[in-house]
């Protein structure tokens, strides 16, 4: 498995960490926008529900509020990968 890891560290050795790492100069044009364009819609309706992520915490809330639990149980976390 030919894995190549390169480090361009000349500036780090001679002048300290590369200045570009600490400034806006290192930005790739439009990259942040391109990355954002692939992300999930953060305004999706299901995200407006205050999902608990721990069943015992949720039971405690259900007890206090005297409401039933609704449990969305998946293979993979419902708020994550599935």
């Amino acid at each position: 498995m030919p894995i190549v890891f390169c480090a361009i560290a000349v500036f780090a050795v001679v002048f300290g960490p590369p200045a570009a790492l600490y400034s806006q100069d290192g930005l790739v044009p439009n990259l942040a926008q391109q990355c954002q364009a692939v992300c999930q819609d953060t305004t999706a309706a299901w995200r407006t529900v205050a999902w608990q992520t721990d069943l015992i915490d949720a039971q405690n809330v259900a007890f206090e509020k005297q409401q039933p639990l609704f449990i969305w149980a998946m293979d993979g976390h419902p708020l994550g990968c599935t």
Partner: peptide
């Protein structure tokens, strides 16, 4: 979970919880 009635019920009358049951 795009259904407005379901969302309203979950928000107002339930304690909604999401889990990865592989763990639980």
């Amino acid at each position: 979970f795009a259904d407005p009635e379901i969302l309203a019920l979950l928000k107002e009358r339930f304690v909604p919880v999401a889990i990865d049951q592989w763990y639980t």
